[in-house]
Amino acid sequence: MIEVGALRALRSVAALGTLARAAEELGYTASAVSQQIKRLEGQVGVPVLAPAGRGVVLTPAGQAIVDSAPEVFQALERCAEAARSVAEGAPRGILRVAAFSTAVRGLLAPTLSRLSTRCPDLRVHITELDPDEALHGVDAGTADLALVHDADGLPAPLPSSLTQRHVHTDAGDVVMSRAHPLALLDRPLTSIDLASHAWVTSPPGTVCHQWFRRLVADVPEEPDVRHLIDDFATQLSLVASGDVIALIPRLARPRLTEDLVSRPLRRPPQREIFAAWRRSANASPAIQAMIAELGAAIESATTQTD
């Protein structure tokens, strides 16, 4: 009979391309993963991996095993969830959550205290991961729940073994010093309003930089970008100097100090945020408790005042 650990190891190697990366994800050594693969090959009687440059690829037999793996993991998940349900559906144990950084700050962090009070036997372990990595972690079984966002309007591809639920729409506002001329405009800002002003923005390649480029696309002159800073708190410290303004997602925005003010945009950039988990874990009391508590955190984040 195929060992579950060996099946999980093969699936991780298939997704990541090397024994070393699979070992890092699974928390093993590369030698331990190699031994699991060898035991699997002994159990099925045929090779499941073949060398490919510095990495490895699946053999046809290995691909057949990986293709069947989701059904195995889903069946095991259903067994575990049935056992949890016997205990009156009380959330307990460890819930492993993978999420992008601003979701950790704006959604998960405000949730933990309430969740701890409601579910004292549940512990939440959070890992910061980009959406693609977070979904892979849930699909591979190294995480139970993922919080992901669409990238420039395109959602991350969802593996067939997962299901998802929309939990929030995040939007960007322009933040400035209270002494800045734009602070006097008590209305949503337009791209024309933003022309000729200096900026601090997130670096190219980030979602927030894509938001910024789209926001100023109609401005005739090239925007005056003074600083490229990835950390939003650092952006705000530069905004406080009065020389620059910044476009910051609401979830990523710390509470503003008295010398700063935010202004909404007439056409704000937005991103949709989803919670994703394995279909076989639909009945998980821990996942359902987390989803329920996210609602209150989202309401708190969207009603945060300057």
Rank of each mutant, 00 (worst) to 15 (best):
V174R: 00
Q288M: 11
V44Y: 05
I287Y: 05
S85T: 12
A52E: 13
P181M: 10
D170R: 03
T169H: 11
L236Y: 01
I273E: 06
L95F: 10
S280P: 08
A195M: 02
A301L: 08
R92C: 11
L185F: 10
L247I: 05
V46H: 11
V175F: 05
H180T: 07
A281P: 05
A22E: 04
E77N: 15
I298R: 03
G62P: 09
A32W: 01
G55R: 06
L256S: 12
S177T: 08
W199Q: 00
A80W: 08
R39M: 04
S241A: 11
I245Q: 02
D306W: 04
A289P: 00
R226Y: 03
P204A: 11
T303W: 04
R84H: 11
P285V: 08
A22N: 06
A179Q: 12
G42K: 06
A151Y: 13
V216I: 12
L10A: 04
L10E: 02
A198K: 02
D67P: 06
G17L: 00
G106D: 00
I273T: 14
A30S: 15
S161N: 08
E25G: 05
A240P: 02
A82G: 15
T169W: 05
L40S: 06
A146D: 03
D130H: 08
A198W: 02
R255F: 11
P51V: 05
L49A: 02
S160C: 04
G153Y: 00
P223S: 06
A195L: 00
V216R: 04
L58P: 03
A240Q: 03
A69W: 15
T201R: 06
S241G: 13
A297N: 10
Q36M: 15
S177Y: 01
I248W: 02
L247K: 06
E25T: 07
T142M: 04
S12Q: 09
A134T: 09
A64P: 04
S196P: 00
R21C: 03
L158R: 07
S177H: 09
E77H: 14
V86K: 13
A283M: 09
E25S: 05
V207G: 12
E293G: 07
R92K: 14
A50E: 15
R267W: 10
S113P: 01
P203Y: 05
I273D: 06
A98F: 12
A283I: 01
A198N: 02
M290W: 04
Q288A: 11
R178S: 12
D152Y: 10
S116E: 14
T305P: 04
E293T: 12
A23T: 07
P155Q: 03
V219D: 06
I37W: 09
I192N: 07
L10N: 01
T302F: 07
S161W: 05
A233G: 10
S85H: 12
A171Y: 14
S191I: 04
P188C: 07
A292S: 14
T142V: 15
V239E: 01
G137D: 14
T111V: 02
E272V: 12
G93C: 08
L215V: 09
V33F: 07
D139S: 15
A179W: 03
A75D: 12
D306M: 08
G137H: 15
D231A: 13
H149A: 11
V225C: 01
